[in-house]
Amino acid sequence: MTAVATPKFEAANERKKSRRGFFLALPAYVYLSLFFALPLLSVVVYSFAKRTSTGGVALEEWNIDSYTKLGEPIVRDILLRSFTLAIITTVICLVLAYPFSYFLATRKASTRNIMLVFVMIPFWSNFLVRNYAWRVLLGNDGPVSRVTEGVGLGETTILFTPTAIVLGLVYGFLPFMILPLYAAVERMDWSLIEASRDLGATGMQTFRKITFPLSLPGVIAGSILVFIPSLGAYVTPQILGGGKKTMLGSYIVTQFLTARNWPVGAAVSTVLMVVMLGATMLYFRKGGRTL
């Protein structure tokens, strides 16, 4: 037989290959479209819909009233408070997690694994239960309060304050900061640090110019993983904040279940999603691909 390779044959073969890839991915496509993309889209659609007088949603008379409502002082305060607490939580997590991750990444493999297990252990019990445990710890006659009273600092009254919320959020999300940071530092080429020292940089200069910039993908990934759930947190503000100061999560729940104003609930959810999308894009811009 003679050679039959032609550009046409090659192109057809390429098409066949890409079709095969499509069929392999089809079940996942269908699943994601039905149970992820579609509900997400309906949230966005609802945010532009009209609320009926009975608390239902009418898919007509499209408007942006729900979004203008976000500018009202009450909602604006909630947004501001949620963002502030989420940022504080993220910064505290970063400051706590970075030195720990660095320490972890410089241990020998066996020590690392044991310590990573310790980081994971809290996940073995229910998130709700852990939040209630904090409530007991911080309560009026809880152990923390008894200690501060015992040493003459008076009663501990941080339960049901923003401080308690941040405490709970940091406690809940710290592992999400540690893991990507650890991965970033652990993967770093240590000869770069040696090169920096060799070129006359002090330890501190080396950290500022080499170590930290190179671990930036981990810093950003960890920050996103902490910031996003903190921003939309519902359980922790509800239990440790006592629901007194409403945060975004509580507000969305209220709009859907109590106020029966689905369009506003949907609008707040949409804003949250846009923020998350922005953060994720920032991450990929900053070289997150390599993670």
Binding site: D189, S191, L192, E194, A195, S196, I210, L214
Partner: peptide
């Protein structure tokens, strides 16, 4: 350095 260790 052996692998050059250039700052990427």
């Amino acid at each position: 350095f052996q692998n050059y260790a250039l700052f990427p």
